[in-house]
């Protein structure tokens, strides 16, 4: 639900602003940050669902399941890293570095896996990688406190439901 809202925000607002180099991916920043703060299996599930939402987004033209595959795997890996860095997990600096690296690997993985499954999204997509990574370095420290607050609130709601 939240990923869907973030994706809508990305498509309606962020993608319509002509940023230099490339448009920042608030959606990927959000998904990877969330995965870093989450347990592995839940991170994988949330990554899969977020990817699936991206796959079936009206503006998406790729193969359904591609983003789900990529984000499930990356989210799991990022979460694994988050568990190992449990002590500094909620530091904005750690989050920024991990999210930026996560976005970089996500895009590379997407291009590589896309070439394997004969997807058309390849070279052109690759050109946006430096720009997206740059903007994630700029935006992650700005929005990570908000993500941490929302994550805490979501955890609180989850516990109260249990």
């Amino acid at each position: 639900m939240l990923a869907g809202l973030i994706l809508t925000l990305q498509e309606v607002v962020v993608s319509r602003i002509a940023f230099p180099f490339a448009n920042p991916s608030i959606f990927l920043i959000f998904v990877i940050s969330w995965a870093f703060l989450e347990d592995q299996w839940l991170a994988a599930l949330q990554g899969f669902l977020a990817g699936f939402i991206l796959d079936i987004s009206p503006l998406s033209v790729g193969i359904v399941g591609h983003w789900a595959f990529v984000l499930a795997a990356i989210s799991y890996g990022v979460s694994e890293l988050g568990v190992q860095l449990r002590g500094s997990r909620k530091s904005p600096l750690t989050l920024t570095v991990v999210v930026t690296a996560g976005i970089f690997f996500t895009l590379i993985f997407f291009v590589v896996s896309g070439s394997l499954i004969n997807s058309n999204q390849g070279y052109g997509f690759m050109q946006t990688v430096p720009g997206v990574v740059f903007w994630s370095l700029v935006f992650t420290p700005l929005i990570s406190p908000l993500i941490i607050v929302v994550k805490r609130a979501a955890d609180g709601v989850g516990k109260s439901l249990e």
Binding site: A44, L45, F48, V64, G65, H66, A68, Y76
Partner: peptide
């Protein structure tokens, strides 16, 4: 978790294949 991830990845691959 790994099993769950494998299941998700297989589901994704299934979706990709179907698509």
């Amino acid at each position: 978790s790994r099993f769950f991830l494998s299941a998700l990845l297989i589901t994704s691959l299934l979706l990709i294949t179907l698509d």
